[in-house]
Design a protein around this nucleic acid. Structure first.
Lengths: 206, 206
DNA sequence: TGATGTATATTCACTGGTGAGTATACTTCG
DNA sequence: CGAAGTATACTCACCAGTGAATATACATCA
């Protein structure tokens, strides 16, 4: 119970992570978090100036780890670009089969705080999603694809769609369908991009 | 079933609709709803047995109207199948530009109640999304497309992705990107399908 | 060395307010 | 009358945030 050596702030953030993700923002009180962290509420308020502040810190703490995971899945996947993109979706399907999976914390927080567009956590969430989009765009760009930005956005849309749809139906298979859609869109972009080694007689564009 | 078709009940449901959609489920109290409806909380409890019951009624009341809207957008759109599908997305982009737009109520409710998978409102939400998916699948099927089910799911994923992503970035343009992705996927399915014989309304001329 | 000051970190007990839900009584109309 | 519908006024739990006090660590200086 008493852990004099533990860093209280980290403990609070860890507890907040688990509870906010598992139950939702407004469903969790700072009393809940304090209890789970083994501190009093006042200690929570010592380290975070308000609940909103803690919510922001919660999302911020997930930003880099989540992005790193996506990158890892992409980089470690076998095959060409379409396969690597599809791999992200297949990994999400796997994650979603775990009983504690409850969708994307960023998306769920955005949905819950939709009435507070200026909330600091909303900005963190938007920035996170944008980073993912730009990273993917850069990957496409590096391979010389045309329309990298639009393609990246399409993949992002499928990804967020997968998160949402899986949550609604509790059916991770949707991630695989989304992965196949993403694969098709990437393949299409690869095939229609500037010359690679095309055996087709593509006409120059008007 | 009972038919409590009183004025008060409708007023309460209307108020619940506005408030739940605008602010979120847990952010709105029955006191808020009662006040907005111009009745006392006890009257709310006379017509709805609990807050959960009212949340369920809120989503149920949006089921048919929303589906009708999607159908209308689809049916009234010019062009071939890909255009009709894309039209839904363009209409969503337009809706999303209204300042009071706050995403898809079904999705946001699912996100907020993700910790209560058995909640009656969750079932209503899942059923609603499934109806849309099956309607679209049937439209594809009617045109003799192969893989209608998978294609319908892909479009659904893009649609829910658009709702989510627009909400995160407050940028309705994502709906247009999603629409183009959907168009591409539908075109691909049309082109790869076994020759269909049904003369459809798609014009032969670009 | 030891006394004292100061910033960090934490607790207990509390406030003002709101939440879901209820007990009871009043009203209106068939 | 009596049932449907509404109102007043309540309970009890919880919640975000606070006040005052305390404990610990470490520095400064007499």
């Amino acid at each position: 119970m008493n852990r004099p050596n533990s860093n209280a702030r980290d403990g609070i953030l860890t507890a907040a992570n688990k509870l906010f993700y598992a139950e939702g923002i407004r469903a969790v009180s700072l009393d809940n978090i304090a209890e789970k962290a083994g501190v009093t509420k006042k200690t929570v308020y010592y380290h975070f100036k308000s609940k909103d502040d803690l919510v922001e810190a919660y999302l911020a703490s997930r930003d880099q780890p989540n992005l790193a995971l996506y990158r890892k899945w992409f980089e470690e996947a076998d095959g060409g670009l379409p396969d690597k993109v599809a791999a992200i979706f297949y990994q999400i399907a796997t994650s979603a089969r775990h009983p504690k999976w409850k969708g994307c914390g960023f998306l769920r927080t955005a949905a819950e705080l939709a009435n507070m567009p200026g909330h600091p956590a909303m900005k963190v969430g938007a920035a996170h999603k944008k980073k993912f989009e730009l990273w993917l765009e850069q990957e496409f760009e590096n391979l010389g694809l045309d329309g990298s930005a639009a393609l990246s956005r399409q993949v992002v849309l499928l990804l967020d769609g997968a998160f949402s749809t899986i949550l609604v139906h509790r059916d991770p298979d949707y991630a695989e369908t989304a992965g196949e859609a993403a694969r098709a869109l990437v393949e299409r972009a690869v095939n229609s991009s500037t010359p690679k080694r095309s055996g087709q007689m593509e006409s120059a564009n008007p």
